[in-house]
């Protein structure tokens, strides 16, 4: 086991989800979710499509509403109060499967938009921060280009930098490499590993099991809207306890 996964995880609670249930109309999409995430933890969520894993992390930053149960992020209860939602969204960053960069703005403007308009950071300062994070994801020379001029892997790295510019304490990833060509997956995963090594709290929905083995403290398996199994990576992959987990792993790891 490498050092990353052996890092001591703190006692501080970053995200606390208790008895959370969500319905789409009458369809019960998330059932009795209990999950506590500690600061500095890296959690990988996997499962078949339709299992509710994306819905779960989208509930955490209020992109989706839950009907029952409670979600507390960094001590703030997630309710319909806009002030709470604003506070939570500035602490939580999110990366999407389809990047969702703003095509009419340059890369630099993509990164400085939120700091200027939400945090009221002066423009010079916001640009300096943006360049710092663009260097971190290794594409500072693309700052004045437009998203349409970049490759998929570069766009996703810009998306990560854009979220980091708001200095979040928690990062959510919704299948960040699923829309990428194979040769670009590595550059994005390397960026995410670097983030993890610096101690960022991460929840990652992904199919990249190698990444899970290398970086995750916990792997969670979801099916039909509920958490079926969670364990440390080694135990999870080598010794899955539930039948459904075994079936899923045999399909994913088989080829």
């Amino acid at each position: 086991m490498n050092d990353t996964a052996a890092m001591k995880v703190s006692d501080e609670v970053a995200i606390d989800i208790q008895a959370m249930n969500k319905w789409y109309g009458t369809f019960h999409v998330l059932r009795d979710i209990d999950l506590t995430v500690y600061r500095g933890e890296r959690i990988v969520i996997c499962g078949p499509s339709g299992s509710g894993k994306s819905t779960l992390i989208r509930c955490i930053n209020a992109l989706e509403e839950h009907q029952q149960g409670s979600i507390t992020v960094d001590g703030t209860l997630l309710s319909s109060d806009l002030k709470n939602i604003d506070t939570i969204r500035s602490e939580v960053g999110m990366c999407f499967q389809h990047f969702n960069l703003f095509p009419h703005l340059t890369i630099l403007e993509n990164c400085t938009l939120a700091p200027i308009w939400v945090r009221k950071t002066p423009k010079k300062e916001a640009e300096a921060t943006a360049m710092h994070f663009l260097e971190k994801v290794k594409i500072p020379d693309q700052a004045l280009k437009y998203p349409g001029q970049l490759s998929g892997g570069q766009q996703q790295r810009v998306a990560i930098a854009r979220s980091l510019c708001m200095k979040p304490r928690i990062m959510l990833f919704d299948e960040p490499t699923s829309a990428l060509d194979p040769e670009m997956i590595k550059e994005v995963l390397d960026t995410m590993i670097e983030l993890a090594e610096e101690g960022m709290t991460m929840l990652c929905v992904t199919h990249e099991m190698g990444f899970a083995r290398q970086v995750a403290n916990r792997v969670i398996f979801m099916d039909a809207g509920q958490i079926v199994e969670q364990n440390e990576p080694e135990e999870f992959f080598n010794n899955p306890k539930s039948e459904r987990t075994q079936l899923f792993l045999s399909q994913i790891l088989g080829h």
């Binding site: 930053n61 969702n100 703003f102 308009w117």
Partner: peptide, 21 residues
């Protein structure tokens, strides 16, 4: 696409600003 307003909301922008910017 819906993803644009979701990304802007995830960054903390409110709906008026999302529409305008």
């Amino acid at each position: 696409s819906k993803g644009q307003s979701e990304a802007a909301a995830a960054l903390g922008l409110r709906s008026g600003r999302i529409m305008n910017l």
